[in-house]
Amino acid sequence: MRAGLSQVELSQRSGKDRAQIARWERDVVVPSLETLRELLRACGFDLELTLVPYEEDRKQDARLQKALERTPQERLQAMLRARGR
């Protein structure tokens, strides 16, 4: 997106099949890390990986899981109620 390339242009630059690029864009599958790096380099970027501490936030996960079980209407109503507090 940042490189402003079409699928055809990215295909030409990276040597990857255009249909495969379309599948990545549609999120049918995700590319491997090595393939992602090749694609980014074809766009003039690189991927910098940095290890950072990670701690699972179980409370937030529980909140988000509960939100996912609600309907969109219920999520909106919950937010409006929370705003009123």
Partner: peptide, 14 residues
């Protein structure tokens, strides 16, 4: 923000 809330984000928006 409202779009994110509709998807389940636990933020508030005005």
């Amino acid at each position: 923000g409202l779009g994110r809330v509709i998807h389940g984000s636990d933020e508030l928006t005005d």
